[in-house]
Deep mutational scan, measured.
Amino acid sequence: GYRKEQERLGIPYDPIQWSTDQVLHWVVWVMKEFSMTDIDLTTLNISGRELCSLNQEDFFQRVPRGEILWSHLELLRKY
Rank of each mutant, 00 (worst) to 15 (best):
L69S: 01
D40T: 06
F60V: 15
E5T: 05
W29S: 04
N45C: 11
V30N: 05
L41P: 13
I46C: 08
W26N: 01
M31N: 07
D38N: 10
S53M: 09
P15R: 03
N55A: 11
D14Q: 05
L69Q: 01
V23H: 00
Q6A: 10
L41D: 04
G10F: 06
D14T: 01
Q56Y: 15
L24R: 13
W26R: 01
W70Y: 11
R77Q: 05
D14F: 00
W29Q: 03
Q56E: 13
K78Y: 07
I68F: 11
Q61V: 14
D38V: 05
W70E: 02
E74D: 13
H25Q: 05
S35P: 10
V27R: 04
D14N: 11
I39F: 14
D40W: 00
D38I: 03
W26A: 01
I39V: 15
L73Y: 00
G66R: 03
Y79Q: 14
E33L: 04
L51T: 02
D40A: 06
W70F: 07
Q22A: 05
H25T: 09
H72F: 01
E5P: 00
H72M: 05
D40E: 09
K32D: 15
H72N: 11
I46G: 02
Q56C: 08
T43E: 14
G10H: 11
Q22K: 02
R77G: 04
Q6D: 03
E57Y: 14
L9R: 12
K78S: 12
L51P: 02
V28W: 12
L69V: 04
G48T: 02
Q22T: 01
I39D: 05
L41M: 14
C52E: 04
F34V: 09
D40C: 05
E5L: 04
T42V: 09
R3E: 14
S35L: 07
I46A: 03
T43F: 05
I68Y: 12
S47D: 11
Q22N: 12
M36A: 13
R77I: 06
R3V: 06
H25W: 04
V23K: 02
G66M: 00
V63C: 14
D21I: 05
R77W: 01
Q6H: 01
G10C: 10
V28H: 13
G1A: 10
F60D: 04
I68R: 12
R8M: 08
G66W: 03
E5S: 02
L9H: 10
D58F: 06
F60I: 15
E50N: 06
E74Y: 05
S53I: 04
T43A: 14
I16S: 14
T43R: 13
K78G: 15
W29G: 02
L75H: 15
E50Q: 14
Y79M: 05
Y13K: 13
G66E: 01
E50K: 12
G10W: 04
G1T: 08
N45T: 14
W70H: 04
W26V: 00
D38R: 08
K4R: 13
F59L: 04
L54I: 08
I68S: 10
M31A: 12
W29P: 00
W26E: 00
K4G: 11
W29H: 04
T43I: 07
I46K: 02
E67L: 06
Q61D: 08
Q61R: 14
G66A: 13
E33N: 07
D58N: 07
W70Q: 01
W70S: 01
S19A: 03
P12H: 02
I46Q: 02
S47A: 08
L44Q: 00
S53P: 04
S71T: 15
K78P: 07
G1H: 15
R77P: 02
R49A: 14
L51H: 01
L9C: 14
D38M: 05
S19Q: 06
P12R: 00
Q17W: 10
T42R: 13
I16M: 15
Q6W: 04
W70G: 01
G66V: 02
D21W: 07
P15T: 00
Q6S: 06
L44G: 03
L69D: 02
L41W: 09
L69R: 00
D58S: 14
E33P: 06
I16G: 05
P12Q: 00
F59I: 04
L76Y: 03
L9K: 11
F60W: 07
N45K: 15
L73E: 02
G66I: 02
R3A: 06
I46V: 09
S35T: 13
H25N: 12
G66F: 02
F34Q: 13
P12G: 03
D40Q: 06
E57V: 10
E57I: 08
N45Q: 10
I11P: 01
I11Q: 00
L69G: 00
I11Y: 06
K4H: 14
L76A: 04
D58Q: 13
I46N: 03
R65V: 08
T20A: 15
T43P: 14
R62P: 00
M31V: 12
T43Q: 13
E33R: 12
T37F: 13
C52Y: 04
V30Q: 05
Y13P: 11
R65M: 09
D40L: 01
R3L: 07
F60A: 13
N55M: 05
R3K: 10
L76W: 03
T37H: 12
D40H: 06
G10D: 07
F60G: 09
S19Y: 03
V27M: 09
M31L: 09
E67G: 13
D14E: 08
Q6V: 11
G1S: 08
I16D: 09
Q17F: 06
K32G: 10
D40R: 05
W29M: 02
P64C: 05
T20K: 15
R77C: 06
F34E: 11
G48F: 02
E5I: 14
W26F: 04
V63T: 07
V28L: 15
D38K: 10
T37Q: 14
H72E: 14
T37A: 13
I39T: 12
W18K: 01
D58R: 10
W70V: 01
H25D: 07
T20D: 09
V30T: 14
Q22L: 01
L41F: 10
Q6K: 00
Y79L: 12
P15D: 01
M31I: 12
W18C: 01
R3D: 04
M36P: 07
E7H: 05
T37N: 13
L75A: 13
T20C: 09
Y2C: 06
G10S: 10
L75V: 07
S71N: 09
L73H: 02
T43L: 14
W29Y: 09
Q22P: 00
S35A: 10
H25E: 04
N55V: 08
M36D: 13
E33A: 08
D58L: 10
W26G: 00
R77M: 05
P12F: 00
G48V: 01
P12L: 00
V28C: 15
Q56I: 08
H72C: 05
L54T: 03
L76K: 01
D21S: 13
K32A: 08
E57F: 11
S47P: 12
V63D: 03
Q17M: 08
L44K: 01
Q56K: 14
L24M: 14
T20L: 05
L75R: 13
Y79F: 15
L54M: 14
V63M: 09
S53V: 05
L69E: 01
D21K: 13
P15I: 05
L51G: 01
M31E: 05
L76E: 04
L73A: 02
R8L: 11
S19C: 04
P12A: 05
L75Y: 14
S19G: 05
L9T: 09
T20R: 13
L69F: 13
L51R: 02
P64M: 00
K32P: 02
R65F: 07
V63I: 10
V30P: 02
H72L: 02
V30E: 10
P15C: 02
L69N: 00
W26L: 01
R3G: 07
F59Y: 01
L54Q: 04
Q6R: 03
E57H: 13
E50D: 12
D38G: 12
L41S: 09
Q17P: 00
R49E: 15
K32M: 06
E74G: 11
K4C: 06
R65N: 11
K78L: 08
L24T: 11
S53N: 12
V63L: 11
M36T: 12
L54G: 02
L54D: 01
E7Q: 11
C52N: 04
E5K: 02
T37I: 06
